[in-house]
Write a protein that binds this DNA or RNA. Sequence first.
RNA 1: GCGCCUGUAGCUCAGCUGGAUAGAGCGUCGGACUACGAAUCCGAAAGUCGGGGGUUCGAAUCCCUCCAGGCGCACCA
Length: 553
Amino acid sequence: MKDRIARIIDDALRRAIVEGRVSVERLPPIILERPRREEHGDFATTIAMVLSRQARCSPRELAGIIVERIDSPMVSRCEIAGPGFINIFVDRAYWWDTLCEILNRGDDYGRVDVGKGRKVQVEFVSANPTGPLHIGHGRGAAVGDSLANILKIAGFDVTKEYYINDTGRQMEILGRSLFLRYRELLGEKVVFPEDHYRGDYIKDIARDMISRYGKKFLSSSEDEVLDRFTHFAMSVILDGIKKDLRDFGVDFDNWYSESSLFERGLVMETIEELRKMGLIYHRDGAVWFRTTDFGDDKDRVLIKADGSTTYFASDIAYHRDKLVRGFSTIVDVWGADHHGYEPRMKALFRALGRDESTLRVIFIQLVSLLRGGEPISMSTRKGEFVTLREVMDEVGRDACRFFFLMRKADAHLDFDLELAKSQAPENPVYYVQYCHARINSIMEFAVSRGVEVPDTPERGCMERLALKEEIDIIKKLAEFEEVIERSALDMEPHRLTFYLMELAGLFHPYYNRHRVVTDDVPLTTARLSLCRAVMKTIAKGLNLLGVSAPEKM
RNA sequence: GCGCCUGUAGCUCAGCUGGAUAGAGCGUCGGACUACGAAUCCGAAAGUCGGGGGUUCGAAUCCCUCCAGGCGCACCA
């Protein structure tokens, strides 16, 4: 609808130019907005104000010239307002047509093609396999997963990936932590270092170890068994992470292991490639990547003086491989505390001759957990963090995912456990879900009364949808695909959440004021069609957010 | 010190690539269930868009500056 109106304006403007009424060098795209106030029409454009200087006439005069040339049955009237706005009122017949189109699209409604089949990879969560997922990872999982869903329906070819940091010092520490707990549980006195993983989950894994191997490793030195302990701990933890994510409704296309980068020689290969480009140098016994050539504020070490590689070395090899795999856009979802890492990663892309916009980093801000308005203290160091599992078990998956998507990713989120699980009106999750369940009830009621619920819309009946509320709902439905496009292009899934709350916010009052199923058969048919369209749109939208659309609650 | 994020109603937040008189929800107060689900709806009060400059026909939105909070500035991951 929006595109069609834009074309009508564009045509009118071009006609004015051809007729010599205005002279304009460059024609900007026609931008339409939805005015806040309804007396300003269904759409409005500022094109006359934008072009007035170029066209050397007043905005209102230019608007008049354009409006005179607008000729379409879709536009019932046009007004020039204020400093030069052109307000456009769409004929209701076209809103009825729109409703029919939406219903005819069926399950396909919402599918758009801004992605044009381009390959995009979304890498998210990627939590180190050193402990269970906490609430912050949950937010990243919700954002990454629904973003991937939205990109998919917007026409991108999406791959979801989890990067496993399974090498390096932290892995050693994990193995040592397990070995220490193992010995401790078998009665040895141990000193547990400050920087080791202190969470109780390590003890649980140690118990597993004991039940499987007994005291077998008690007499072994750490060197002899460290690999085994590390590997054991990691695989148990990783299995737990996978289960948590699966239960959260998140599944990945690919689990990419850091150690595979080394096995395939990609880390050294990447460093070699940069060396050939003259971007590598040695200093103080270390090997450096000259990222300052590409906007970073200092150069970065790839190989330390002790011969081991840095995390960054793995990461550039990993991201180079993403490019090799043919992704045209690479999305990384990171915790906001990693934002300082972005410039050096962008530097890699530029070094490899790619536009830095190829990499889109989405930062996930912290989640503050509250209970009834009171903050719950969290400290990873002491091991008393709140896990995703705990929150999911307490408030449920739907509420959890919905809450994570109620804010834009880079804004702090207050997550109140009591609010999230309350079935009271102030809980927005249920507001949207209830709308879906309620419409389902209407459908069932209609069937029970012997009313036929139409599968395909009957255009003739639609004219009975004459109420302002009904037209408003159709207009909102017509926005759905625009919301999908914007959420995809701006990579902001929270917009979809807001859209669904708005749509439900139009439907509930309508329901309370007007009856759907009455003795008036054509009116009933029309209203059931409207209901069906709302129901489908809400179901589709919730589905993209990873939230269920229940038929009963 | 430098960089990034945030600052909008009592609270939590929207506000699309600058547009018209600033938008929700919660909370507060007052109302609505003998016809499709009251997890709903109706009504009321509530704002110096952190402060100050600038750009422009027009700024919550862009630029500068200051203030407040958070987070980063490793041969850690």
